[in-house]
Nucleic acid binder design. Structure first.
Lengths: 327, 327
DNA sequence: ATGCTGGCTGAGAGCGCTCTCACAGGGAGG
DNA sequence: CCTCCCTGTGAGAGCGCTCTCAGCCAGCAT
């Protein structure tokens, strides 16, 4: 009981292979009664085109890879960024009738696997969703002649097209809110300096402070809750008089909240807190977290659009301040 | 600058196509000096086999699909189950030299897409990770003649092989701990009755209570934090004297904790709480959550093993009680 | 009647690979 | 010396599909 081939369908419908192919691929130059007959034969046999054979001749795979160049732990944390991107990519790819293949390239072994897979003709293009801006994977694929689009501005100085979210602007608007509500000593728990999001959000913090003439008070974290706790503790130590903090991720903000509570500070009365990402847990924090939300789903859609329309310029999407109670 | 073919490599190395094929596929019957020459030619040209052509003749794709038959929101929530499964599947597939293709089949449209993709020869087998036990997808694929393994016992009465985690046993051990610590009125916020995990964990709760002669106090949730809050509120209303609660998911436990606090109950002094899943946020809850941990990564590995070795019996993996402070 | 379109259909090549089979060459055995 | 086998290599078919091109049969103008 092997899968039926075009040949079988043709025989059953009493036409040639070519005609069945035409029907299956929606050509208009087929007489109505023949089209109907072929379609019935297809149904009856449960015919599904062999994609390998099709790809072999068309040189297309009609699918795109979405590669997460991160350990799975990060991808499936409560960071909603990835989920949004995936949904956006799926939606847009669906509309363009392309399959999406998700791949995890956490390890260096994974990189190699992904490179082999994508260069062996499985996909027509690759979206690399990497948080580490200096990831060598996108450039490596591009060198192989595969269309590549990056999610997040690449740090490698390559000229690959990318879609990013306005991290600088988002951070600026967070700090501006703190400024406008009268806060005087505004600290930040920054993200890691090897990730674009970490770098850019710190830049935004600095920009906003510079304009106001205030001095910056900085601790470095790695986006995790624990590092937020430690960063906040250190900040409190450095400047006990601070009255606001901008955490470069919600998880760090959650950690900061804990440190603040432990130090006997009330939020937002004594210290205002703003996070970044708008994770699902943010509205449930104590107090509910004011944060920066990103259009992740739209990011996914733009990624696909760019991949499918080579030559279009890179895109930077705006963010939105979500005001709750922590600031 | 099209991709080099076997033919090109053969020409460069001064041998035939067949010999290059042999070298690429690791055949031993090739003279050493020829093998070296061919390998050099492969390197120099950057040759990567065309997978479509290979699949066409071998009738194999050397890759397996891991299908999440759920909306992406669930998959990428802070439920660590999926992440663990993915890591386990990746690891085991890697060892067997198979590619893993992740697919999301949230919508009915998605189901159709997945069915088309998997039946068109892209993959050698499918792992369906669905939380809804009555999902029609696994059976549909099996009917098409594609090897299928389910993550989680299917509720459809089909005899498909599956790997599940001992939900009944896990729930029993949670309730037993409550019993052993002297709690007298033990309630539960159960999961949805259309998911295996919901059903089985409730069964476990009932089993443990029945043995002890206590009566059951039940609210139904849907595994989300909000439903945990509401379930707990209702439970408190039904039986203000309860002194313990088993929540069928950590998210619901978190919601329950909030409801308990709001009602002025101390945890664990007045009411003990045990959750299920051991989500990343569990140790950070107030108080840190006692919960049931599952061997999700091992689940992933078993899934692949079953897929690659047809005929082996289904597997049920044990759970582990993680004691923190809430019970 | 002949020629010319123009719309549909079929024949056939060929995509890049694997794998069977034939065959060349050399050492062992008769 | 010839035969036999055994190892290593090449020739060639064919996987299932698409797509070009030729061919056929109207229908219309000449």
């Amino acid at each position: 009981m092997s899968r039926p081939t075009l040949e079988k369908v043709a025989a059953r419908a009493g036409v040639s292979r070519a005609t069945v192919s035409r029907v299956v691929n929606g050509s208009t130059t087929v007489a109505e009664h023949i089209r109907v007959a072929v379609q019935r034969a297809v149904e009856e046999l449960g015919y599904v085109p062999n994609q390998a054979a099709r790809s072999l001749v068309t040189q297309r795979a009609d699918s795109i890879a979405l590669v997460f160049s991160e350990p799975p732990v990060r991808v499936f944390s409560d960071d909603p960024t990835f989920a949004g991107i995936i949904r956006g990519v799926s939606a847009e790819a669906d509309a363009a009738d392309k399959q999406v293949v998700l791949m995890l390239a956490g390890s260096s072994r994974g990189h190699e696997r992904v490179e082999r897979y994508t260069t062996s003709g499985h996909v027509d293009g690759v979206i690399v969703a990497s948080m580490h801006g200096a990831d060598p994977l996108p450039a490596a694929l591009a060198r192989r002649g595969i269309p590549v689009v990056c999610s997040g501005r690449p740090l490698t100085g390559s000229s690959l097209p990318y879609v990013d979210i306005d991290n600088v602007g988002g951070a600026e608007s967070a700090v501006r809110r703190l400024l406008e509500s009268g806060r005087r000593r505004i600290a930040t728990v920054a993200g890691p300096p090897d990730m674009v999001a970490g770098i850019d959000r710190l830049t935004g913090y600095r920009n906003a402070l510079r304009d106001s003439g205030r001095r910056s008070i900085i601790a470095i974290g790695d986006f995790t809750r624990d590092s937020g706790f430690e960063g906040m503790t250190q900040l409190l130590d450095d400047d006990p008089g601070l009255d606001a903090v901008f955490a470069a991720s919600d998880m760090m903000a959650l950690g900061a909240l804990r440190a603040l509570r432990q130090a006997g500070r009330r939020v937002p009365d004594d210290v205002a807190v703003i996070g970044y990402d708008d994770v699902p847990a943010a509205p449930y924090a104590d107090p509910p977290l004011t944060t920066i939300r990103q259009p992740t789903m739209r990011m996914g859609r733009e990624l696909v659009r760019l991949l499918l329309n080579p030559g279009e310029p890179s895109v930077i999407l705006p963010t939105e301040l979500v005001v709750r109670e922590s600031a």
